[in-house]
Design a protein around this nucleic acid. Structure first.
Length: 114
DNA sequence: AGCATGACGTGAA
DNA sequence: GTTCACGCCATGC
């Protein structure tokens, strides 16, 4: 196997994310050895050759949001899954604030600390 | 070999 | 607080 593509290295990092914790693409990219490749990390997860093995659902955006449209099974499924693992979520509208929808993860409490 | 795209991040308006 | 645009690097054709 010569050198595993960036892809493989990203999976190794994502797979070592503890349960009940989430990591951002930038965090994974940095741990993978590419602090500038957050975008490539997303590309790697998109390739995700081993679904079920790589918990891509634990990888979220820098602001705690997930990938819209690419969520495996739907954003509701991912929210329930992370919540079941003990991840804290922040509701979209705390006070009748319509428009701002999309649950965000409480990175202050659940972001993975390498 | 080069071009176009893409699960992001950050800065500024 | 939110939204737009640019930049970074790797992959696919």
């Amino acid at each position: 196997m010569a050198e595993q593509s960036f892809n493989s290295r990203v999976y190794e990092v994502v797979k070592r994310i503890p349960r009940g914790t989430v990591a951002t693409y930038g965090q994974v990219a940095a741990l993978a050895g590419a602090p500038r490749n957050a975008r490539t990390v997303g590309y790697a997860l998109h390739a995700n050759p081993e679904p079920g093995v790589t918990p891509c659902h634990r990888v979220v955006f820098r602001d705690g949001s997930l990938a819209p449209g690419f969520a495996f099974g739907g954003p509701d499924e991912q929210r329930a899954l992370l919540e079941d693992e003990g991840v804290t979520f922040i509701p979209p509208a705390p006070n009748g604030n319509a428009g701002a929808d999309g649950w965000r993860v409480d990175l202050d409490r659940c972001q993975w600390q390498a």
